[in-house]
Design a protein around this nucleic acid. Sequence first.
DNA 1: CTGAAAGCGCTAACAT
DNA 2: ATGTTAGCGCTTTCAG
Lengths: 335, 335
Amino acid sequence: MGRDRDVDAITMEDVAREAGVSRALVSIVFRDAPGASDVTRDHIRRVAARLGYRPDRRARQLGRKRTQLIGVTFGALQPFHGELLDAMYQAVEGTGYELHVSAVSQRHGERAAIDSLMDHRCESLVLLGPRLPTAELDALGANVPTVVVARQLRSSAVSQVRTDDTLGARMATEHLLELGHTAIALSDGGALPGAAQRRRGYRESMEAAGLGARLHLVPGGQREVDGERTALSQAKGARRPSAVIAFNDLCAIGIMHALRLQGTAVPDDVSLVGYDDIGAASLRAVDLTTVRQDTELLAQRAVQRAIPAPDRGAAAGVDIVAPRLVLRSTTAPPR
Amino acid sequence: MGRDRDVDAITMEDVAREAGVSRALVSIVFRDAPGASDVTRDHIRRVAARLGYRPDRRARQLGRKRTQLIGVTFGALQPFHGELLDAMYQAVEGTGYELHVSAVSQRHGERAAIDSLMDHRCESLVLLGPRLPTAELDALGANVPTVVVARQLRSSAVSQVRTDDTLGARMATEHLLELGHTAIALSDGGALPGAAQRRRGYRESMEAAGLGARLHLVPGGQREVDGERTALSQAKGARRPSAVIAFNDLCAIGIMHALRLQGTAVPDDVSLVGYDDIGAASLRAVDLTTVRQDTELLAQRAVQRAIPAPDRGAAAGVDIVAPRLVLRSTTAPPR
DNA sequence: CTGAAAGCGCTAACAT
DNA sequence: ATGTTAGCGCTTTCAG
């Protein structure tokens, strides 16, 4: 009852006393620094474990003058970010760094998320699909090594790690062209990260096929509901495209369901290609043809860039990862 | 080039010097403590802003002997958690506390997530739908005020904030009963948080309707793919239920698409009820009848319990929030 | 309002 | 191999 909560605070001092050694020795042991015999290490570790001691990260950080923290922002409602985050945890393992995560959501904007990371003195930042203006990201990059993932921008201040979205969009478009489609629409992401590149790839492929006049952009977005909008905006008549490339999988799924609901068969009436290859894309009932982003590799590269290499300066760089077309059952020749 | 990164470190000292005041004064200003005139405050804030000073959270925490941090774990791939998290950010606003978030994913388990929160000396923990065994949560609750959200357990060591899932399941079941259904199946969540209560509510309502012999549990889960499994396990014959209650919306969506894919109409052939009312449930193409969990209220209660009130001890308590049945278009009378 | 001083739980040189 | 001693950037108390 009279238990002192909060004051769990088992300190290094306590461990040292209990183990009958100096505090410095305990420190050495917990830092894996040289200067202690194996028996001593073992003994101290044992005592610490018994006491339930856990080093205080903040104190350690203060003393060490570095945090070994990589700050990460991600969209709380974006499954693709969830998957990237998962991969990030994996990528950071064994590096000595820890992820400090801050969610971006309706009530917690990107700036708030980033501020929090800065207040905690993260050594570098990894921003998943940030929506902030380039100027702001530039300013940020001038203060702290920043890696922007899944978005392209013109900046020499921040590093970038992204899929070659132009290529990805080309792969999607060319796949449809090869199937024989000519009326191919793009559900456009507007100003969303990656959208400009995907537009470009789409346009390039269409033009290369002599279909420059058939470019067909329709407003889309990154959520299912945006896909619905896309689908509903399409007339059922002769002008309806025979194939649609969605901004991402979520959008594609929205399109698909809306189409099917209005009696349009996928892929019989309309072929559909997504982007990302999130988990939901491979569901049997979805089985979406899509452009896969390699989350493992993206995460790995992001972590590499986030951790300042001892030799090379903190120069900002760009990593481009190859996309891969995953063929499933939402694409077929036009009828 | 020779730019000293990392050593941004504008300290209180710097601000004090630049503003021509003592460091203590700067501290007072940034703590909003009494002892400084309004002009001085203004002046110091201005100088600090110009210098781009941001107080160091860790140092502040160390000195203050408290972190004012609420640790939160959430499932990186669970949209419902994403929505709860969003609500948490809102709920914590103005309390002086900050959220310290740790994702739970395949490669980053619950234990790792919690350990990290403890290492950072979060004052209390809010666990969204934790899967850890009760004993472990109990042990945790003995060390740090812990709030378990969206899961019921027998424990006097941790607080609980959850929707009345038994009631929620009853509402779903009774809605179907009223429509005239008798062959109602439950896509069961097994050991998932909340699953036992939902089973119970379902059973109670069925038994109250004299359908105790018609109980029909089929293995489900929390992801779309689990819903698919549920759908595929159901024979198309006469024994097929006329209505299904899913463990959650994601599962319901999986069921719905799988059913439609195999030519079963929803709600004409089979009625469907979800749980949570995540964003996707209200899409036109989904338009899922579901049991809504009040994320705002859950988050608010969780934060209240997480912040130790000055008067009441850190006694563990339970908050139960009412569910609400949201009628949409996936339920209809049996034919 | 200032300035000095102790302390938070660690790290990391430097002694022994 | 082990102990001593300054810090790290801040809070907080206390005497001016």
